[in-house]
Structures are given as structure tokens and as C-alpha cells.
Computed example of a mutant assay.
Amino acid sequence: MAHHGKRVVKAREGVERTKLYKLEDAVKLVKTNASAKFDETVELAINLGVDPKHADQMVRGVVNLPNGTGRTLRVAVFARGAKADEARAAGADVVGAEDLVAAVQGGEINFDRCIATPDMMPLVGRLGKVLGPRGLMPNPKVGTVTMDVKAAVAASKGGAVEFRAEKAGIVQGSVGKASFGEEKLAENIKAFVDAVNKAKPAGAKGHYLLRAAVSSTMGPGVRLDLATLQTAGQTGA
């Protein structure tokens, strides 16, 4: 049996596992329980009524969190000429073409987000087996295959979070840091849920948003009352 420290046990005792908490109350609980010596990341997990094995039920998208993630991402851009210069000017950390492909093939992956201009995709496509499993493969659906390199780099640096439904139909992602104010975390969570709602696939039948929970890196999950998260006109059905 795993041994849990007093801090973890105390945090779990303060959360009712089956209770659905209003967003504001859940955020307060998560912040209270984030007592590690580092600034814990706050994560949101949403269970969806989809089967990602079917192409028409795949959920994928990107959300620009209004208050950022609290994390500075390293961004790589595959581009040539003027677009490469644009990427560097926008603050990209790694920029290149064939040289960058060779570096990645050699195991040098020192970036968290990957952007490419459309003309570079035949080259980048060779890296599918390397970048794909890491969730780094550029994709036009989430704005990482684009000619507007400047905007894509700015979005990545400013709080853009990609999301994708995993095998069990679960979408998860970072919505900030425990040091964020309650209001900022709540705004980010609402924006994330809204983006997932808008990404509802045509093949989704019945209830779409099933369950959601928010937690910090070291803290217990706090279940959310989805009714307090959805704006007018949105439903889980």
C-alpha cells in the first residue's frame, strides 16, 4: 500500500470525493491544497461522451487562455527565408529547415511547441514518428501549420494550450498555476471548457460533457459542477 504524507492525507480529507463543487469553491479548494514548496500547476480533466477511435468523434483543438498558463514555452518553427526571420523576430526559440529536421532526428528536441509553414510539411512529415507521440506534430486544426508565423508564436508564448481526446475520451490540460488569483484560474477554466464544447464533433451522440475535475500537481482532484461552467445555450447533451 502506498504511503501518503500528512499533507496529502489532510488535503484529501478536505475534499468530498463524490461532491460536485461550484467552480469558485473548487478553485479555492485547489489553491488551499497546493502546499508544495514549488508553484504547482493546475490541471483540468474532462470526461467526454465520445469514442476517439472513430474519426467522426475525435476531439481536438486549441484554447487561448485569457490569463496564460504561467509557464514559458520553448517554441520551434520550421520555416525558410523571410518566414524564418519573422519567427525569430516573434521570439521563437529554435528556427530552421533541413538543419532542424536533422537535429530532431538526432534526438535534439529542446522545445515544447512546434510550428511550421505549409511548404515545410513534406519535410516535417518525416518526423511524425518522433514528434507525434510527444504531441508536438504541427497541425492546421490547432493553428500550428500556418503562414502567419508571428501570430502562432505569440499565441504559443502567450497561453495557447492544445487539447486532444485520449483513448478513454478524456481531455486534459494545464489551466494555470496555484499562485494565480482565484478569478484568473476560474476564467481560464471557463475558457478551456468553452473551447472543448465548441470542438464537439459531429459524431458525438447523447451527453457530451460527462464529468470534470480540477487539481494541482500534488493535490487531490476536485469534481466540478458542470452546470456552473457552461454559458447560455451550451448543454452537455
Rank of each mutant, 00 (worst) to 15 (best):
M121C: 05
A160W: 06
G159K: 06
G91E: 06
G96K: 08
H54P: 03
A87V: 02
L44T: 03
I109W: 11
K150V: 09
V124H: 11
A87C: 02
A160H: 11
R74S: 09
F78E: 02
G68H: 08
D39A: 04
N33H: 14
R60H: 12
D93Y: 00
E40P: 10
R164D: 04
V124K: 09
F163T: 02
L48Y: 02
M120L: 12
M120N: 07
K129A: 13
T69G: 07
V94T: 09
K83F: 04
D119Y: 05
G91D: 08
A165C: 02
L100V: 06
F111I: 07
V104T: 12
G49H: 02
V42R: 02
V63L: 02
F163D: 00
G81E: 14
K37P: 10
S35W: 05
A82E: 12
A116Y: 07
P122G: 10
D56L: 05
L127A: 01
V161A: 04
D56H: 10
A154Q: 14
I46T: 08
A151S: 14
A89P: 02
A34D: 00
V50A: 01
L73P: 03
R60Q: 12
F163V: 00
A155L: 13
R88F: 09
A102R: 15
A36S: 15
V94N: 10
L29Q: 03
G81T: 13
H54N: 15
A151Y: 06
E98V: 06
R164W: 04
E108W: 06
D112W: 05
V161Y: 07
Q57D: 09
H54M: 12
K31P: 11
D93T: 00
K167Q: 14
D99A: 05
A82N: 07
V145C: 08
N67R: 15
R80T: 12
F163I: 00
G135H: 06
K167M: 14
L48H: 00
P140A: 06
G106A: 13
V95R: 01
G96C: 03
N67T: 05
F111A: 08
V101I: 03
A151W: 07
A79N: 03
V77K: 04
A34Q: 04
T41H: 07
D85W: 00
G135C: 04
S35Q: 13
K150N: 07
A90K: 02
P52L: 03
K37L: 08
E162R: 11
M137S: 03
K167P: 01
I46W: 12
N33D: 12
L127N: 01
A102N: 10
G61S: 10
N64S: 14
M121V: 02
T72I: 15
V94F: 13
A79W: 05
V153P: 09
F111L: 05
V75K: 03
F38T: 03
P133H: 01
E86K: 04
G143M: 00
A155I: 11
G106C: 13
V130Y: 11
V75R: 00
P66D: 01
T32V: 11
R60D: 11
